[in-house]
Design a protein around this nucleic acid. Structure first.
Length: 349
DNA sequence: AACGCGGGGTT
DNA sequence: AACCCAGCGTT
């Protein structure tokens, strides 16, 4: 039964899979690792250009390890989930400096690396080293839940265990790299989230979900993410030809990216020249500011929060000690730093 | 076990 | 607006 599904997926892969990606059939663990990290929670179409740019700038893991943080973050800019970039660098440096530049080939060692979990570990172990570890990503959850008609929530602990075991059971142990590629491509192009191609699906007769008429109800998720609204008011402070720029450090969105002077509020604030002068005077001790502009309302929708606010451009005529403690950079230095899209969409206007 | 983390495409 | 995307780390 399961053997049948395995061979049918392999058969589909061999004869009908037309999906192409730059890293397909790649065997260099560095390139596989890089592509997999870029693709975590990221569509292939979105990640491909980033992959090409990373390979171009860092042909080997040593090139990546020896690069400065800011250069790498600038290349990652706009891709999101920036801890991936931080962990990518940490792992590149660890392998280069501590492992003599040799990527580990054992699954247990691979998943101990920062930024590599069960999915990415199985992907590297199978694609680079052809070891029999089944990948379990969003595609595999969906394909298996439908093929076997399983309504266990995929985001529950028991669900993860159940599907992990099933994926390993279905895996073609003789051809793990090919099979893992097959089941993910099948999920992405045939067994799609919306309007899957059930009518022409080669596995239709083997699909319990189809037989029960519940394909469009699978997979089941139990968690609902809660959203919140935040107001970000950025003061772009200019002194002569320099700008106040800070790096975000807290456990919050956009950690390790840069920003201007931030005033965050839980509610909307209404600004005019007078209220801006008052606020600058009270909060920063700035007496002689010139308000150069107040932007229209800006919005950025994230998965879990909605950021709204404005950008207020201010020129200050004299520097004082409190302000001097911040970092002031000319624009040609500012543009080398990585910023969140919320700020970049203002800067590029 | 629950939560937080980006940005973009599709429906 | 809701959902999803070659998930992972922290608490």
């Amino acid at each position: 039964m399961n053997k049948n599904i395995t061979s049918q997926l392999m058969n589909w892969h061999q004869h009908e899979n037309l999906r192409e990606m730059p890293w397909k059939e790649e065997k260099d663990p560095y390139k596989i690792w890089l592509s997999e990290v870029i693709l975590q929670q990221t569509r292939v179409e979105q990640g491909t250009a980033y992959y090409e740019r990373f390979i171009q700038n860092f042909p080997t893991i040593k090139d990546l390890a020896n690069s400065k943080d800011e250069v790498v973050f600038k290349l990652w800019e706009g891709l999101g989930y920036y801890n991936r970039c931080k962990n990518l660098l940490a792992t590149a440096r660890f392998i280069t400096n501590e492992l003599d530049g040799v990527f580990p080939s054992e699954y247990e060692q691979i998943i101990n690396l920062k930024g590599i979990g069960p999915y990415t570990g199985a992907a590297i172990a199978s694609f680079a080293f052809n070891k029999p570890f089944a990948v379990l990503d969003g595609n595999v959850f969906r394909v298996l839940s439908r093929l076997f008609g399983i309504d266990t929530p995929i985001d529950s602990t028991i669900g993860k265990q159940q599907f992990s075991k099933l994926a390993q059971d279905v895996l073609d142990k003789e051809n793990p790299a090919l099979f893992n590629q097959a089941i993910m491509d099948f999920g992405a192009t045939v067994c799609k989230p919306m309007s899957p191609h059930c009518r022409t699906c080669p596995l239709q007769s083997a699909c319990s979900g189809f037989e029960m008429g519940i394909v469009n109800k699978l997979p089941v998720k139990e968690k609902v993410l809660k959203k919140k609204n935040r107001w970000f008011y950025y003061f772009i402070l200019q002194y002569q030809d320099t700008f106040l720029v800070e790096k975000r450090t807290g456990k919050d969105i956009w950690e390790n990216l840069h920003e201007f002077y931030l005033l965050e509020s839980t509610e909307q604030l209404i600004w005019n020249d007078s209220s801006i002068h008052d606020w600058l005077q009270e909060q920063l001790g700035i007496e002689n500011a010139i308000v150069l502009g107040i932007s229209p309302l800006q919005k950025q929708q994230l998965t879990h929060q909605l950021i709204k606010g404005q950008f207020i451009k201010v020129e200050i005529k004299s520097m004082h000690t409190q302000l001097q403690k911040h970092q002031w950079l000319p624009m040609n230095e500012v543009v080398k730093l990585a910023f969140p899209k919320y700020i970049n969409q203002y800067l590029s206007v």
